[in-house]
Structure formats: structure tokens, C-alpha cells
Amino acid sequence: MIQNLLTTSEAANYLGVSKAFLERDRWAGARVPFIKIGSRAVRYRLSDLHDYINKQVRLSTSEIA
């Protein structure tokens, strides 16, 4: 199955965060799943971004992630 792969900039735009947020996230342990292609190319699957968004749903601001 072929899936849409987004660049870091495209994924950041889709999530409504900065490109730097995703770069820091990869460096710190990657809560947002990514794919590394070759030695430099980083891509994000649209399905992984949807899953990440769904996992961020909270019922209270005091709820611990």
C-alpha cells in the first residue's frame, strides 16, 4: 500500500506546529513517528500523523499525558 509521505515542513504545517518542534522531537525521542530514508531524508506518513493527533485527545487540562 502506497502512503503519502510528507516532508518535515509539510508535516509541521499539517499539525500546526513549527518545523523546529518536529526537529527537536526527533532529537529528543520522537513522539511523532517518522521515517528516515537514506542518510538525510526524513518523511512522515499521514497515517502516523493522524494516530499522533488522536493520542493527544484529553478531557481535562490537568490530565497527565
Rank of each mutant, 00 (worst) to 15 (best):
S18I: 00
S62G: 04
S9M: 08
S60R: 14
S18G: 14
L46Q: 15
V32R: 03
N13V: 04
W27F: 10
L22E: 01
S47N: 11
S18K: 05
L59G: 12
V17M: 02
G16N: 00
L6Q: 01
E23L: 13
S60E: 09
G38T: 09
L22C: 09
N4A: 12
S9E: 15
D48N: 10
L15A: 03
T61R: 06
T8A: 14
Q3E: 15
T7R: 07
S39M: 10
K19P: 01
K55M: 09
L22Y: 02
L15M: 06
R24Y: 14
A41K: 11
E10I: 03
Q3C: 10
I64C: 12
I64K: 15
A41R: 13
L6W: 05
S39R: 14
D48T: 07
A12L: 11
R26Y: 03
G38Q: 05
L59F: 11
K19Q: 15
L15R: 01
S62Y: 06
V17R: 04
T61G: 10
H50V: 13
I53Y: 00
K36R: 15
Q3P: 04
R26C: 05
S18E: 02
A11P: 00
S39H: 14
V17Q: 01
A28R: 14
T7P: 02
L59K: 10
P33T: 12
A20P: 02
D48C: 10
L46C: 08
G38F: 06
I37Y: 13
D51K: 11
R31V: 01
L15E: 01
I37V: 15
V57R: 11
E63A: 07
R40G: 04
L49F: 12
D51G: 11
A65M: 04
D51H: 13
R45C: 06
V32W: 03
Q56D: 00
R40P: 00
N54Y: 08
I2K: 06
Y14R: 08
D25A: 12
A12W: 01
V42I: 15
L46G: 04
I2Y: 04
K19Y: 04
E23P: 07
A12G: 08
L6G: 00
V42L: 10
S60W: 12
S60K: 10
L6E: 00
E23V: 14
T7G: 06
Y44T: 03
A65G: 09
N13E: 15
N4V: 11
V42N: 08
F21A: 08
F21Q: 01
S39G: 13
A20Y: 13
R24Q: 15
I53N: 02
A12P: 09
A28W: 05
Y14N: 08
K55D: 06
H50K: 12
V17W: 02
S60L: 11
I53Q: 06
A11M: 06
Y14H: 09
L22M: 14
G29V: 05
I53F: 03
V57D: 03
R31H: 10
H50D: 15
S18N: 05
S9K: 14
A11V: 04
H50R: 12
A41F: 07
E23C: 11
R58E: 08
N13L: 10
F21V: 00
I2A: 10
Q3F: 11
Y52P: 00
L59E: 06
S60M: 08
R40V: 02
D25W: 05
Y52I: 01
A20W: 06
A11T: 02
Y52R: 02
K55P: 00
I2N: 09
